[in-house]
Nucleic acid binder design. Structure first.
Length: 581
RNA sequence: GGUCCCGUAGCUCAGUUGGAUAGAGCAGCAGCCUUCUAAGCUGUUGGUCGGAGGUUCGAGUCCUCCCGGGAUCGCCA
């Protein structure tokens, strides 16, 4: 149950009764939301102000009519006009009791919606180059993308989590050559790894594996042939490495899409370019050098260009390099046409800050290949600075080495890593302080939220001690005498719970998973706050030794809080422990 | 120079996609432990929302121009 949706419908109905001439486009602009200041009531709507002007009426006059209409609503204890024409509602207790019951009934589905109506959404995230283990720079995008995917799925979208493997570029050839050196080392040769090659130790076992598989065989064949074999083996090994890193964070993709499969004379790139030509989206021409910064080796030549400017980009884009091979972007156009042809009209790409210059191009490509039928939202994750006690921090043993994702997770754990990365808007740079993240105090939001969840369990344990015979099963809670929940403090807690479905929906629409993290933190604060009230006023304690009926009702409230925290943490991919040790 | 992101309390950040008198946490100050976990809570101090215009019933939010910080900038991936 979503009280805001409920009253949004009632307001729309009322308007249609009072002013039949109000159209659906106006109704769509009306919101029913919690007022910023709780003193104004439980719900507030801007309906009168939206509708007044088109009707040629005064907002307060329209508001007055609506107020009169809602006088008859038994779920409303007061309605009044405020300010320029807001209508504020105060709701009767039974509404909150219904909310509480519905949470018990819906359980882990509370907050789930059909917002997406089953529409397919492709969310591409991570897509780190398969040249080594994941470093910490990838972590934010990985966690963000994964959580956004969960959020969208929870909101009724048919989500595909996708990883694009950049396995076709020259860096992969370098990777293969680097691996070949490790192979020769495995055979006992003393080989230096020259600069420009991948020096990481993670290639050593791959070289070992090649020795075990081929003996000296690879040295006895032409180098090109050997490199082709090595490339296959090392790509598989690197992807295994990356998948293992992602698994550490609880991240699993549905589709791993290889760039290489797009190449070739009959591949998607060739077909897409042919198609773009038919559409007149390609031409041969020259590009202006970038203003203010002409590259030294700038070569003014005629080349094959995509009309990206027709779709909002700043300049047209090259598709074929001077050596005749396709540009990265050409492959990406083909890739996104492939996504579209697989049935995705909604696409989201999660990219790092260093790719912000790529956004317009990507959106232009998506519009072009879908003939404007698909939308592409690009979410940029800004940089994360690793800190320790306020000082910039590098964990690398050798200079130049990057801190790996695995290092971070091993150091602070999955829950803290995920939560901290989500407890911040994605488009703002953030500091990630190891000292704070590991701290088990209220300064640490992960801990604060998990503690609220553990506290709910603790209350149940104490209740069972106090009433050894009493039934605290879900069935018993469902039939608890919830009408006993009447204090302002309790009902305030229910109000927070009532905002959950609305919060989820808004976060899904905005593609902003951080809102879930903030909500869960707010809920934890409200719960801790109520718990502490039992100190000043023992009547407000959850467990009341003299009153098993009231205790049961309050435990239903505790259970609802527990449930919503669980649902929120589930979206975030953070565990909800029953006890903190 | 172009493009994108950020600028909100001393610090770290929210701000319900244009709503009412701009919020929270830390830090500071004042309190609360014979208590369902003090791993917590309550109260309080603190603001020309970077600046200037504009759009309208109404702007932290949208538009334009500046200032400051960051990212990025032909065929790399």
């Amino acid at each position: 149950m979503d009280v805001f949706a409920l009253f949004s419908a009632r307001v729309s109905n009322a308007l249609q009764v009072l002013y039949p001439e109000v159209g659906p486009d106006l109704l769509a602009r009306i919101v029913v939301e919690p007022p910023r200041d709780a003193a104004h009531g439980d719900l507030s709507t801007n309906a009168a102000m939206i509708v007044a002007k088109p009707l040629g009426k005064n907002p307060r006059e329209v508001a007055g009519a609506l107020v009169e209409h809602f006088q008859a609503d038994h779920d409303v204890t007061s309605v009044e006009v405020a300010g320029p024409g807001f209508i504020n509602f105060r709701l009767a207790d039974p509404i909150w009791h219904q909310v509480l019951r519905s949470i018990g009934q819906q359980g882990e589905s509370y907050g789930r919606s059909n917002l997406g109506q089953g529409a397919p959404v492709n969310i591409e995230y991570v897509s780190a180059n398969p040249t080594g283990p994941m470093h910490v720079g990838h972590t934010r995008g990985a966690v963000f993308g994964d959580t956004l995917a969960s959020l969208m799925a929870f909101s009724g979208y048919d989500v595909t989590r996708e990883y694009y493997i950049n396995d076709a570029g020259s860096q992969i050839n370098t990777l293969a050559r680097s691996t070949l050196l490790r192979y020769r080392q495995a055979l006992g040769e003393i080989v230096e790894i020259p600069s420009g090659f991948y020096p990481g130790d993670y290639l050593v076992p791959v070289g070992q594996g090649l020795k075990e598989e081929f003996g000296t065989g690879l040295l006895e064949m032409p180098e090109a042939e050997a490199l082709a074999i090595v490339k296959e083996r090392v790509l598989v090994a690197m992807m295994e490495l990356i998948k293992a890193d992602l698994a550490k964070l609880g991240i699993h993709h549905d589709v791993f899409f290889s760039e290489r499969q797009l190449h070739g004379p009959d591949g998607d790139i060739a077909r897409t370019l042919a198609w773009l030509r038919e559409q007149g989206m390609i031409y041969e021409g020259r590009l202006e050098p970038p203003k203010g910064k002409t590259p030294e080796d700038w070569e003014d030549r005629e080349q094959t260009l995509f009309r990206a400017t027709d779709y909002g980009d700043d300049t047209d884009r090259a598709l074929i390099k001077s050596d005749g091979s396709y540009t990265y972007f050409a492959a990406d156009i083909a890739y996104h046409r492939n996504k579209f042809l697989r049935g995705f009209k909604h696409m989201i790409n999660v990219l790092g800050a260093d790719h912000s210059g790529y956004v317009k191009r990507l959106q232009a490509a998506t519009k072009a290949v879908s003939l404007n039928a698909a939308d592409m939202d690009v979410r940029i994750c800004q940089l994360v600075r690793l800190m320790k006690n306020g000082e910039p921090f590098k964990m690398s043993k050798r200079s130049g080495d990057l801190v790996t994702l695995a290092d971070v997770v091993d150091e602070v754990g999955v829950d803290a890593t995920r939560f901290m990365l989500l407890f911040r808007r994605n488009d703002a740079a953030m500091d990630f302080d190891f000292a704070l993240v590991k701290e088990q105090t209220r300064d640490n939001p992960v801990f604060y939220v998990q503690y609220a969840h553990a506290r709910a369990y603790s209350i149940f344990r104490n209740a069972e001690k106090e009433f050894p015979g009493l039934d605290f099963s879900p069935a018993a809670l469902a039939s608890a005498d919830i009408e006993r929940i009447v204090s302002a403090a309790e009902l305030d807690l229910v109000r927070v719970l009532a905002a959950w479905p609305r919060t989820v929906a808004a976060a899904a629409v905005a593609h902003e998973p951080h809102r879930i993290a903030f909500y869960v933190h707010d809920l934890a604060a409200a719960f801790h706050g109520f718990w502490a009230k039992g100190k000043d006023d023992p009547q407000l304690r959850f467990v009341n030794a003299e009153d098993p009926t009231l205790t049961l009702a309050r435990l239903a409230l505790v259970d609802a809080v527990r449930q919503v925290i669980v649902n929120g943490l589930a979206i975030l991919g953070v565990s909800a422990p029953e006890e903190l040790s």
